[in-house]
């Protein structure tokens, strides 16, 4: 049985469909990546799965419990690290953990042992008795991560766990996440718009765009789907060259991005001379050309037709009423 299961899960806000009939199956023990640009519906999905929002349609079960009808049993089985920090910065790190552990009904002895354990795992033991106010962004994230699994959840939800962190801190957080998954066997459901993060951490990735899931598979299989090699080039007339290449039988796909093209092919090193020949015959000047293995970026591009970086601009948020409701 899947530990997270959803069918036709939908959320409509004021006529705007944020999440559009998605189906999900996450197996116990896996790290499941939910990849998509800002505004794709990732956070809304997490809020429905964690009982904070009621779905407009469809259902979801965590550990077999329905998120609408059995919210308490769901809440007992999960840990959540939200996108925005959710710590009380007038309390110390240890007090934040203790507050949480009590809310989940851990006994005094369990609390003392477990809090030491999670603090060690995220490397915050020396700073545990300082006010969270004095913590850096990375320390806060680590503390929230620790808090997310203090109570031995079956599933840990991480909403953009490394958003706004520098590269080094991000890598450190990744290691903690993998360590956690390995040592405690916790199923992890994480959302991200960082391709590298989804690629590095996830056993399986779901690509979500405009509220719909476009593909679900392991990063390896997703990349294999679009071909074994990617040729990227910049040239004088990308749209015309694109049309010419699309008609070639050995081209599995062509995508435009910025001022260039990505061409998905097999045995790319043999295709480069061919592409150059075709461009010259048509009087198109190629200014650069590279061959590489497909990345998740290419996968994303091929499924959505857009680069995720172009999408990562100011978030398209769901409109929220201001002032009085």
């Amino acid at each position: 049985m899947a530990i997270i299961e959803a069918r036709g899960l939908t959320k409509v806000y004021d006529g705007l469909t944020a999440v559009d009939h998605i189906d999900l199956e996450v197996e116990e023990g896996e790290i499941f990546g939910f990849l998509g640009p800002n505004g794709a519906g990732k956070t809304t999905t997490i809020k429905m799965l964690t009982t904070l929002l009621r779905p407009s349609e469809g259902w979801a079960r965590i550990c077999g419990y329905d998120v609408v009808r059995q919210p308490d049993l769901v809440r007992r089985s999960i840990g959540v690290v939200f996108q925005e920090p959710a710590l009380d910065d007038q309390l110390t790190g240890r007090e934040n953990l203790d507050f949480h552990a009590r809310l989940y009904g851990l006994s005094r002895r369990e609390r003392e042992e477990r809090i030491e354990e999670v603090l060690r795992l995220v490397g915050l033991r020396d700073r545990a008795d300082e006010l969270v106010k004095s913590y850096s962004g990375g320390m806060r994230r680590r503390l929230e991560l620790a808090r997310g699994f203090v109570h031995h959840p079956k599933v840990l939800f991480l909403d953009e766990p490394t958003l706004g962190l520098d590269v080094q801190t991000r890598r450190a957080i990744w290691n903690y996440i993998m360590e956690l998954n390995r040592r405690e066997g916790i199923t992890i459901f994480l959302t991200t718009h960082y391709l590298e993060e989804a690629d590095k951490l996830s056993d399986r990735v779901a690509i979500i765009d405009r509220g719909k899931i476009l593909a679900v598979d392991s990063p390896r299989n997703l990349k294999d789907r679009i071909g074994s090699d990617v040729i990227s080039l910049t040239c004088s007339e990308p749209s015309r060259l694109g049309r010419i290449l699309e008609s070639a039988s050995w081209v599995r796909g062509v995508k435009h991005h910025g001022g260039g093209l990505s061409i998905y092919v097999e045995i790319g090193e043999e295709k480069i001379p061919e592409i150059i020949r075709m461009a010259e015959e048509n009087g198109i000047r190629i200014s650069s050309i590279t061959l590489r293995e497909p990345s998740l970026e290419d996968v994303y591009l091929s499924f959505t037709g857009r680069s995720i970086r172009e999408e990562a601009k100011p978030a398209m948020r769901h409109p929220r009423p201001r002032g009085w409701r």
């Binding site: 809440r75 959540v80 920090p85 959710a86 809310l103 009904g105």
Partner: peptide, 13 residues
Amino acid sequence: QFGFLKEILVAPV
């Protein structure tokens, strides 16, 4: 505003 409410509301109480 500071997000702490979510931490409270997602707890099984």
